[in-house]
């Protein structure tokens, strides 16, 4: 019935994907745009690159207005989309790269030099002659990265560049990006759901929720947003009472039928708390970690209900 009704009348809801937001990125910075699904990160990326036209506000990237899609602007930026291939599916990777060589007017010698340099760094030399559709996701992503760096862009926009990749491929791509940034001093704007990407690559984090900026600062300050706390995990030889007075003040989270517990302890009390637990409970092992970015995110999201 609803389908029939929708033939005549449809209700539309207008929603601002991004609300007024001030952001300034310095040359050579690597910043991470963080936020839950639908927060507005990718919309921001699309506006930065001129794919989507903002309905209000002012935006300048390298002195250009991206929505005008000036030819010189397009020659200076690159975009990698983890979820969308930009290479031509039915032809060998090298043919795609040669097409980009023409588009970006890269001299042939320089092109061959860069192909060799990037292919050896990314370890994809044998894949250059293979049709894109026949490559694995990891190989394809490396070639996508390579394609976007051929013209030596001044800003690289990376939208979830490691999505769907296995841990080894993720690590290799992170290492490559870090090395590339170190060598070229290029500006990088990254969105990713993998906190490992963010912690490994980004010096600065911008947290976006419901289209609004909730945090903008160094990654260390972001980690400290929840106070100077650490997570400590204890493993016991016997199951522990969930109301144990040594554990209860530190927000315990029990697992494995009481054989494991995770505590959130302020850094200044960490030594005393650990000593008391080690002395009084049958601990077989324990580990500590700083408040990881992922947990800060989770906590902030649950606080704001985003």
């Amino acid at each position: 019935m609803g389908s029939l009704q929708s033939l005549w009348k449809r209700d539309f809801i207008e929603k601002a994907a991004v609300k007024p937001l001030y952001l300034e990125v310095r040359r050579g910075e690597i910043i991470g745009l963080l936020g839950p699904n639908g927060a507005g990160k990718t919309t921001l990326m699309k506006m930065f690159t001129g794919i989507v036209v903002p309905t209000a506000g002012q935006l300048r990237v390298l002195g250009f207005e991206p929505a005008k899609r000036d030819l010189y602007f397009r020659q200076k930026i690159a975009l990698v989309m983890g979820q969308k291939s930009q290479l031509w599916w039915d032809i060998p990777a090298m043919d795609s790269l040669q097409l980009l060589m023409r588009y970006y007017e890269i001299p042939k010698n320089l092109f061959l030099e860069r192909v060799h340099y990037l292919a050896s760094l990314l370890e994809v030399e044998p894949q250059l002659q293979v049709h894109i559709r026949k490559l694995s996701l990891g190989e394809r992503m490396k070639l996508e990265l390579m394609a976007c760096l051929l013209h030596d862009p001044q800003i690289i926009f990376l939208d979830e560049p490691t999505i769907g990749l296995d841990l080894i491929a993720q690590r290799k791509i992170r290492e490559f990006l870090l090395n590339y940034h170190r060598e070229r001093g290029v500006t990088v704007i990254l969105t990713s759901h993998y906190m490992a990407d963010v912690t490994a690559l980004c010096q600065r984090i911008v947290l976006v929720m419901n289209g609004e900026k909730h945090f903008d600062g160094p990654i260390r300050a972001f980690e400290g947003l929840m106070g100077q706390e650490k997570y400590v995990k204890f493993f016991f030889s016997q199951a522990q009472n969930e109301q144990h007075p040594l554990l209860i003040p530190w927000h315990p989270s029990f697992g494995n039928q009481g054989l494991e517990v995770e505590l959130r302890v302020p850094e200044d009390k960490l030594k005393d708390v650990c000593a008391a637990i080690l002395q009084n409970l049958p601990v077989t092992d324990f580990q500590t970690e700083k408040m990881p970015v992922e947990r800060v995110m989770q906590e902030l999201l649950s606080r704001t209900g985003a």
Partner: peptide
Amino acid sequence: NSRFPMWLQTVYVAWSNLLAY
């Protein structure tokens, strides 16, 4: 003139696409 090689290479890629299957 500088755009001619871009067109030519795109034509070449389009041919490759046409002949792929």
